[in-house]
Design a protein around this nucleic acid. Structure first.
Lengths: 190, 190
DNA sequence: TCATAAACTGACTAATCAGTCGACAAATAT
DNA sequence: ATATTTGTCGACTGATTAGTCAGTTTATGA
């Protein structure tokens, strides 16, 4: 028995897949609708414009990542362990959801990103910045502008992820790389 | 007296500007031609398809960056000084050619990137990888896969550049940030 | 049970787009 | 001087696209 996925969700899922494969420009809404198994009009019933669909897909995907990042991070552990948990969670999610992670990056480095409101951006960065600020206050992390720290960490993770995605590594080897690269990052920021 | 720029070059210049502002999908070739002050047919005389124009723009821009990176790097200096020179050159170029640098990133994180041949990618990365490999052999840089090292450096630079572009810094302040972030990177990889 | 709303359909359209073409102009070669 | 190639033009076209709309089905609630 087939359990039908929400059509709205199915549209997002299909759009993600196609955007990642062909890009925004080469993915017509008609193709998304067809491949999602819904009528053309249904897509526009949920998303007034193609742009709105793209934006919704971004915030939706970004939220899923953020949620996963902070999963199972117990407050009791040391800041280093919490940070490491967030770090590994992020890379894990990126590796298990390559298309999603790639989409986030593709979107962030496109003119679409400027359509995201400043509030939304601030809101999404808030938990991370708070966490880092706390680490600086506690004299665990090097004192530096928290934005700079955040950007350095983000790009580091993006880099590691790119490296992992480019090669074919066994799970063990992958774990080793993640551990070692974490150490590099941790030494850099503490 | 106006010195006329090559029409071919003018097309590239305009295309870059528009792609950065509106994205590939929202930049019709007709708009590029009009804004570049050439006829529609002229654009297609030089570039058979829109994709070909986009690809040519990428390789052209990437080459310009690579050339600048290695400018005034005398072989006599220490590996650290050479590396620092490349580092600062890169960020300098990125800051002075924001649109160009942004375009490179936008392109690299888009499905268009897969249209670049493996040879072209290898060719462009070669000088950097050779340089890093030499640094590892000389026991100056930490022993690690050179690809990983390359990716870490690249993403670090991308991060710093993003940070610098986001804020409004005086030249002095900017220099300070570059110096300090270089030290972070250098300590991480040595 | 019926009424109202929400989900859904797919044929349709107005607009836009990538790319063509035939003609002309300028440069270059012979 | 003449021929040939190269650069340039812009009107044109066939295909494609985002988005509409009038109507049908399904869910919801009173």
């Amino acid at each position: 028995m087939i359990v039908w996925m929400d059509k709205k969700e199915e549209i997002l899922k299909t759009a993600l897949k196609l955007f990642v494969e062909f890009g925004f420009h080469a993915t017509p809404t008609s193709k998304i609708a067809k491949e999602a198994g819904v009528a053309n009009g249904t897509l526009f019933h949920y998303y007034k414009t193609k742009d709105e669909l793209i934006l919704a897909l971004y915030t939706h995907t970004k939220s899923r990542l953020t949620d996963y990042m902070y999963a199972n991070a117990s407050k009791d552990e040391s800041l280093e362990l919490i940070f490491k948990s967030i770090y590994t969670n992020t890379i894990e999610w990126a590796q298990e959801n390559k298309a999603e992670f790639y989409f986030i990056q593709q979107f962030s480095t496109s003119p679409f990103y400027s359509l995201i409101s400043t509030e939304e951006i601030t809101k999404q960065a808030k938990p991370h910045l708070d966490f880092l600020q706390h680490g600086i206050k506690a004299a665990v992390l090097k004192p530096m502008p928290v934005d700079l720290l955040y950007t350095l960490i983000n790009s580091h993770i993006a880099g590691i992820n790119q490296y992992l995605s480019a090669g074919e590594f066994s799970t063990a080897k992958q774990k080793k790389i993640i551990n070692e690269s974490f150490q590099l990052l941790w030494d850099m920021i503490t």
